[in-house]
């Protein structure tokens, strides 16, 4: 699919921040396109949201997203599903290219790309992804019901996935990478099915067509774990790879740096939601996105009148 499309504002991301930004900008009669990625937003994994104002009864992440999407469309935003793979943001108009080689241009851009799982770069991790290496316990866990699996990761993500897997699989070897991001007893307290392998480091995921085991190093000594799957649960990192060489400044964690108006270091480029690492809540993502959209809309109108920043 080759093609070219021009809009006043392009919002990159279809999570709560992206949909809110799109909804706000469209409601201000700005020609707005939301490019939602092909991966589901993190909110889609939330079974229940019970702290979003106005929703007295709990609502699932998928339902909340569906309503936000509907509202954005109702306000006049257009939505396409694709992945933005490269950007030119410093020039005017700003250009974005999607995986299908379609080029979009816009006067202003709101980045709301959220977070993504960090690869651990273990040998064979990439080769065996989808062949027993999984980043989604809630999706793929049921395929390994009753079996022995390994869970590698850190922080609250590790705790969450250990809780999910313990209700499904037979046994879980848990390895903290990097070590001791959470207290050991929090992990072992989840279920008797969990065996915490302390001071361990994964070396290689074994298997040709699918996972047959995991080679680890425990205090310098190599050991083999007989597992059918390796689940990876690392802290999420901002999806900011597409901003490389764009001039948009990020901090050492990769979080996009924004000011109080959600402006980035590049004129006409705004950011909101988890990719800025601020709040990491649905409500803060929506709030920041509204601020970003309002300021982007003002910027576009000023640009139309020939007034500089």
């Amino acid at each position: 699919m080759f093609g070219f499309e021009k809009h006043q504002l392009i919002v990159v991301g279809g999570g709560p921040a992206g949909l809110t930004a799109g909804m706000y900008a469209a409601s201000m009669k700005i020609d707005t396109l939301i490019i939602e990625g092909t991966s589901k937003p993190r909110l889609a994994l939330a079974e229940v949201i019970n702290n979003y104002p106005g929703f007295v009864e709990p609502i699932s992440g998928v339902q909340l997203l569906s309503r936000m999407r509907e509202q954005a469309l109702k306000m006049g935003a257009k939505i396409v599903k694709s992945d933005v793979i490269s950007t030119q943001l410093s020039s005017h108009p700003k250009m974005l290219t999607t995986r299908e080689n379609k080029i979009y241009s816009a006067d202003a851009v709101v980045i709301a790309t959220g977070l993504q799982q960090q690869s651990l770069r273990i040998k064979n991790e990439q080769k065996l992804t989808g062949r027993g290496v999984s980043y989604c316990a809630v999706c793929d866990g049921p395929l390994f019901a009753g079996k022995t699996v390994a869970l590698i990761g850190s922080g609250e993500a590790l705790i969450e996935e250990a809780e999910r897997l313990s209700g499904i699989v037979g046994k879980i070897y848990v390895i903290q990478v990097p070590p001791e991001t959470v207290e050991n007893k929090r992990i072992t307290g989840i279920s008797e099915k969990i065996e915490l392998v302390e001071k361990a480091r994964p070396i290689e995921i074994l298997g040709e067509e699918y996972v047959t085991g995991l080679k680890i190093s425990v205090s310098g000594r190599e050991e083999l774990l007989d597992v059918s799957a390796v689940f990876i649960a690392t802290e999420k990192i901002p999806t900011a790879k597409l901003l490389e060489n764009s001039g948009v400044r990020t901090d050492p964690r990769g979080c996009i740096i924004v000011d109080k108006d959600q402006k980035t270091s590049v004129e006409g480029v705004y950011a909101a939601g988890d990719c800025t690492c601020r709040g990491l809540q649905v409500v803060t993502a929506a709030g920041d996105a509204a601020v970003a959209a309002i300021n982007a809309s003002v910027y576009i109108r000023r640009k139309l009148k020939g007034v500089s920043r």
Binding site: S39, K40, V138, C139, P142
Partner: peptide, 9 residues
């Protein structure tokens, strides 16, 4: 799987 949020797509 019924618990997979990506599958309906």
């Amino acid at each position: 799987t019924p618990t997979c949020p990506y599958c309906p797509i």
